[in-house]
Design a protein around this nucleic acid. Structure first.
Length: 425
RNA sequence: GGAGAGAUGGCUGAGUGGCUGAAAGCGACGGUUUGCUAAACCGUUAUACCCUUUUUUGGGUAUCGAGGGUUCGAAUCCCUCUCUCUCCGCCA
């Protein structure tokens, strides 16, 4: 959870940073300060009462002696119970607000309202000259390598099936990206796609974005509360979360995973209704770095560069954006988006989002390290990025590599050894 | 799915109602000793929050898997859950 000390030390500074994201957050910080002060006052009173009660109890050596203090102790206990109740209420309202406070943006993140104020960092690759480019779903359906209609009967809208070379292309993309990550030193992890609510809370998806998640029927017996993962960022970042601090020698951790991702996207109705761009289920290779605080800026550049190298090797034109304060994710303090060129839309579309979450997730997950055996544990920094979204990569390849006659796809050089062909038609 | 056993500090492991924030051992750190190392000996060795103090310091509260309960008082008794281990059954 958010560090209250930061707010206590310098509430104005904190407010200034957060208001760059959203001016309304200032009100909530004031509210937090108020509740926090009240809480500390009550806590002090409770502690004093308990201290009184404990010293009473400690003086007692036998049952007979206990009779003498019983009444007195009970009065104190009643007072404690009353204070406890109020303390719990304060705690609850405090946590309700804290859970919705996003990460503070870094200085170099431009202030802006929405995606229109993002900054283009650079643009790479050459946009192919295609007359009347087909969409990936038109071409894919013509070639019989993707299906939407039959799949809609199975699972509804926003689902698709890959067939034949389409499925093989997807498999080749996955294999290519995992191999690239392994070669770059990432540890491949194949995690579960069902995850406990507490981890989603830790990475920041809960409670604010509950509506975007697929929630499993809670088990009334065990009380287990579980969801389908919206991204492998959740299990990867949460993987080393524990009471015990990590050893500095093991850092940085660089992890990658291929998983399906599940998003109910309740709020996205009407956007990108056709094709692979926005689906309820899609595959993604996710990259996660866990590192020392002073290294996170550097690690962020490395992670983003790795994601870019995939697009370069696939020969896909793309650009990198530095997201403005109004567009970065809840847990991120700085974020680059990579956008790939989609000829049918005539514009760049997001294919990877690389975030530096600083210690935001680490606090919520209690993810820590020790500089040496004597020193106090400190919070790590966590970073994540797609490397890359598989469905969108599939779409980008089909569209950018379509042949002029509109009846085939040239397989990118980097994928040929995986696919065993240089052309799909 | 059935049956049983567990969960205690960095680790091993005592502890079944108060003198236990927790024995003992290991490890780690500091010191004595030593030509160096080793050994031996002495000492230190959890975390969070709060109060106090000029820094030193002193004090309080919470924490023995998690949550709840009993009690003046809980690591210890009761309930629920989670996880681990062993055996049997079932199964990619």
């Amino acid at each position: 959870m958010l560090d209250l000390k930061l707010i206590r030390q310098n509430p104005e500074e904190f407010k200034t940073q957060l208001s760059r994201r959203n001016p309304e957050l200032v009100v909530q910080i004031d509210e937090i300060t108020k509740i926090d002060e009240k809480k500390r006052e009550f806590q002090k009173q409770t502690d004093d009462l308990k201290s009184q009660r404990n010293s009473l109890s400690k003086s007692v050596k036998s049952k007979e002696e206990a009779e003498g203090i019983k009444e007195k102790a009970q009065i104190i206990n009643n007072q404690i119970a009353e204070l406890d109740k109020q303390l719990n209420e304060l705690d609850e309202s405090l946590n309700n607000i804290l859970a919705y406070i996003p990460n503070t943006p870094q200085e170099e993140v431009p202030t802006g309202r929405d995606e229109n104020e993002n900054v283009i960092v650079h643009t790479k690759g050459e946009i192919p000259k295609i007359e009347n480019p087909l969409t990936h779903y038109e071409l894919g359906e013509t070639l019989g390598i993707i299906d939407f209609e039959r799949t809609a009967k199975l699972s509804g809208a926003r689902f698709s099936s890959f067939l034949g070379w389409g499925a093989k292309l997807q498999r080749a993309i996955i294999q290519f990206m995992l191999d690239e990550a392994s070669n770059a030193g990432y540890l491949e992890i194949s995690p579960p796609v069902i995850i406990n609510a507490s981890v989603l809370q830790g990475t920041g998806q809960l409670p604010k974005f509950k509506a975007d998640l697929y929630h499993l029927e809670p088990d009334p017996e065990s009380g287990l509360d579980q969801y389908l993962i919206p991204t492998a960022e959740v299990p990867l970042t949460g993987f080393f979360a524990s009471e015990n601090a990590l050893n500095i020698a093991e850092l940085p951790k660089r992890l990658c995973a291929y998983t399906p991702c599940f998003r109910s996207e309740a709020g996205a109705a009407g956007k990108d209704t056709r094709g692979l761009i926005r689906q309820h289920q899609f595959d993604k290779i996710e990259l996660v770095h866990i590192c020392l605080p002073e290294e996170s800026t550097n690690e962020h550049e490395k992670l983003s560069a790795h994601a870019e190298s995939l697009l370069e090797k696939l020969g896909l034109p793309f650009r990198r954006l530095l997201l403005c304060t109004g567009d970065i994710g809840f847990s991120a303090s700085k974020c680059y988006d990579l956008e790939v060129w989609l000829p049918s839309q005539g514009k760049y579309r997001e294919i990877s989002s690389c975030s530096n979450c600083t210690d935001f997730q680490a606090r919520r997950l209690n993810l820590r390290f020790k500089r040496d055996q004597k020193s106090k544990p400190e919070f790590l920094h966590t970073l994540n990025g797609s490397g890359l979204a598989v469905g969108r990569t599939w779409a980008a390849i089909v569209e950018n590599y379509q042949t002029p006659d509109g009846r085939g796809i040239v397989v990118p050089e980097a994928l040929r050894k995986y696919l065993g062909t240089d052309r799909i038609s």
